[in-house]
Amino acid sequence: MTDPTFTPRVFSGIKPSGGLTLGNYLGAIKRWVEMQEDPTYETIYCVVDMHAVTVWQDPADLSRATREVAAAMLASGIDPTKSILFNQARVPGHAELGWLFSCVARVGWMNRMTQFKDKAGKNTEKVSLGLYAYPALMAADILLYHATHVPVGEDQKQHVELTRDIAAKFNHDYGVDFFPMTEPVIEGPAMRVMNLRDGSKKMSKSGESDMERINMLDDADTIAKKFKKARTDPAALPTDIEGLKDRPEAKNLIDIYAGLSECDAADVLRDFGGEGWGKFKPALAELAVEKLAPVSAEMKRLLDAPDELDAIMKQGAERASEIAEPILSRTFEIMGFVR
């Protein structure tokens, strides 16, 4: 069997560990919908539920959150006839290749992973082995499909670099050109959506106050209220990007408007530069309701139809397995396993 050429293929996923926010929508899902429409790529999108259990999950919460992520993708425009959409646990090859890659990756590489340090804090002796080793599983998620491109935020770029290191070491150790050098795709406005009450912090589903974030399940009235009450400074909006320096709350709201309206921050400032927040925030609220309220409504419909969601993920897993199984089988063959 000859080693394959690399079809341009996108893989990305979201962990089901709590409610989704505007940050997930602008930073990930909206971009996935756009890439789905690019005929250059095959697109594979995954609810990475196996990553969620690196910390303990209530089983009922995990099931609910898995369906919520799938519903968010579908409601935002992921089309299961154009993209493959499934949850990770339905394709055993993720775990199998994850183990193989944990034997390729070096401990020193894992020690450099900043997200483990952030999440473990001072309790490194008490967290799960999975929390330490999960970047090897993340590499497996990507390379199980020979994905050539991964849309990520800046905070995930290090994991794609690790994926490239694992692919390069595997190829070198076994004298093959089997796994591709996956490229991170980092582009677009509002890639890092910040807290509505503190522009120095990332918008998070685990923040103390619900007013800090826009949840993807928020209704129109709630979306409008949160933007109108978002923290700002007293100065008027600047006329150019340079004027947003040292104004994190202002920059965040401008970036959100740009992301929702599919333009650049400079375009937003051309329209609103010199204006006060009394004009801009209602305009942002109106735009957000227009874009997000239909997504929220469709998510709620899908969550009330779990059989429909499960059927879509099951079909997606079958399609994913058709791609994954030959790649996994060839990996075992290259490594010398008798199967």
Rank of each mutant, 00 (worst) to 15 (best):
T7F: 01
V10Y: 12
F11I: 04
F11H: 14
F11N: 03
S12V: 12
P16V: 01
P16E: 11
L22V: 09
Y25G: 01
L26T: 11
I29K: 13
W32C: 09
W32N: 11
M35D: 10
Q36D: 08
E37V: 13
Y41N: 06
E42P: 04
Y45I: 11
C46Q: 03
V47T: 07
V48K: 10
D49W: 14
H51K: 09
H51M: 14
T54A: 13
W56E: 15
Q57A: 12
D58S: 15
D58W: 15
P59D: 09
P59K: 10
P59H: 12
A60D: 15
L62Y: 10
L62M: 09
T66L: 08
T66E: 06
A70I: 04
A71I: 02
P80F: 08
P80M: 04
A89D: 14
P92I: 11
H94E: 14
A95H: 12
V104R: 09
R106V: 02
V107R: 00
M110F: 09
N111H: 05
D118W: 05
K119R: 09
K122A: 14
N123T: 15
V127H: 06
L129N: 11
L131H: 09
Y132M: 07
A136M: 10
A139D: 11
L144N: 10
L144P: 10
H146A: 05
H149W: 08
P151A: 00
P151H: 07
V152I: 02
K157L: 14
H159V: 07
V160S: 04
D165G: 10
A167L: 07
A168S: 12
D173I: 00
D177K: 12
D177E: 15
M181G: 03
E183C: 03
E187C: 09
G188K: 05
D198F: 04
K205T: 02
K205A: 02
G207N: 00
M211S: 10
I214M: 03
D221V: 01
K226L: 04
A230C: 10
A235F: 05
A235C: 02
P238S: 05
R247Q: 07
A250E: 01
N252A: 02
D255L: 02
E262Q: 14
D264A: 12
D264S: 13
A266T: 08
V268Q: 05
L269S: 00
G273C: 03
G273D: 04
G273H: 04
E275N: 11
G278E: 06
K279E: 08
F280G: 00
A288D: 06
A288Q: 01
V295S: 09
A297T: 08
K300D: 14
L303M: 00
D304T: 15
D310C: 00
I312R: 05
I312Y: 04
I312S: 03
Q315D: 05
G316L: 05
I323T: 09
A324M: 07
E325Y: 15
E325H: 13
E325F: 11
I327D: 04
L328S: 11
T331F: 12
F332R: 12
E333H: 13
F337H: 15
